[in-house]
Design a protein around this nucleic acid. Structure first.
Lengths: 109, 109
DNA sequence: CCATTGTTTAACATTCGTGTTAATCAATAG
DNA sequence: CTATTGATTAACACGAATGTTAAACAATGG
């Protein structure tokens, strides 16, 4: 329950959100690569990565001197489950997506 | 795109998250009712409501001297759409939910 | 009118978040 | 062993967020 709030908090920062999307697009990446092109010190990125780790959104793997990061599915699950559990509040405002969802009565409430 | 980050930010606060859940559970409620039992001044709640409003997560309706709040589905949609678009990253770690989802190949990617 | 009720805004204090640079640490190359 | 590379942690500065109380405001009742 607190995990969900931590996930929201972690993702509310543009730099961290970008990191998460990068990891989703490119698979696992070392901290150094994630620091590239963000106009920010490596130290700052390192702390952002720590926040993401503590929020359960990313995994860290050690490879020699590198720390290689990847998406941690369980972390995203908290958000997905909450979203799905509140489905009734947003499905009404969906267009194409709403139509598709309405056909699927097996979706959990 | 910024709306999504604002939504995450707004929901990352426990008080605001509780307010949103209250509105989901009880339907629309006046600001005064939302301030009850939170151990916090009405002024503080009023500002939390302003944040939720600016994040597009709640609607405000005027009824005489009361301000009546309700969930704004479009706000939640941003989160739902993002979650669904990243479905591949969390569905693998789902148990019951994962099974259900795997059957539904019409779900948008 | 004037007082009351419901809510918001203003001013202020304090805590939290985030960036910087410098120091530290671990792994590897020479 | 020492220097280098990759990354994190420490110490610090500063702006943003959040709570408080007091003031302001709009609607309603007397």
């Amino acid at each position: 329950m607190n995990t969900l709030l931590d996930a929201f908090s972690a993702l509310s920062d543009p730099t961290r959100f970008t990191i998460v999307e990068q990891l989703m697009d490119h698979g696992e990446l070392p901290a150094g690569d994630l620091a590239q092109g963000k106009g920010m010190s490596g130290a700052a990125i390192s702390r952002h990565l720590k926040v993401l780790r503590q929020a359960g959104l990313v995994n860290q793997r050690v490879n020699g001197t590198q720390r290689i990061y990847s998406i941690r599915p369980e972390g995203l699950r908290a958000i997905a489950e909450w979203t799905i559990s509140k489905r009734q509040f947003w499905e009404a405002s969906l267009d194409r997506l709403g139509d598709i969802l309405q056909e699927d009565s097996s979706w959990p409430t």
